[in-house]
Amino acid sequence: MTDAPVSGVPAADDFDGHTLEELAEYLDRGRYPVDPSIESSPACRIALAGLQRLREIAGPLLQQEADAAARDDRWIDEVLGRISLESRAGRRFPFPDVPVGTEAVVTEGALRGLVRAIGDSIPGVLTGRVRFEPDESGTRLDLAVDVTVFYGTSIQSASAAFRERIALLLPRHAPFAVGALDLRVRDVLERGPEQP
């Protein structure tokens, strides 16, 4: 971090009147519009070829270094330990039918997790974004759920299974019946779910 600003050396116009920076920017523009003073200069063309090659090396550089390095993801487990504590709880919905002296709520985050898990348990389905809103009476929940399905999954029967399981299971864990369920297929994945 202590290098002084550069003066002189390579910025000198030593490519037939063009600087390396100009040539790099020309390359950034895809060598368009064509600049004859660059294209007709052997020095410029050699430098452009070099810059181009450098760029081709730069592109996959990190991926190659990543592939070559020993994999060590232990830090991820540590991070997960830290973030799970502040999971996204959101709103809190009270249960009406509980013992006297007890207040009990279920968090929005817990219900999202439940809906995700129900969706994931259907073969060929992965749950995405989950949104819901209680209706005006506060006893029914309208849901909007994005899903990804694996190629070959029948969207119709997966939707039916999702609907059925949500209607059965959600009321066991939340003070709500299931109202509207807006299921949106956002993506179709090519490979089968049995692959690792």
Binding site: V98, P99, G101, A104, V106, A110
Partner: peptide, 28 residues
């Protein structure tokens, strides 16, 4: 489950009048 937790907590605390606030933070 909330009923069972209520009973268990009051018994463990030895206090039948203990007020409880229970949050279900994750279901899986």
């Amino acid at each position: 489950l909330i009923r069972e937790v209520t009973v268990a907590v009051r018994r463990a605390a030895g206090d039948d009048a203990l007020e409880l606030h229970i949050e279900l933070a994750s279901i899986d």
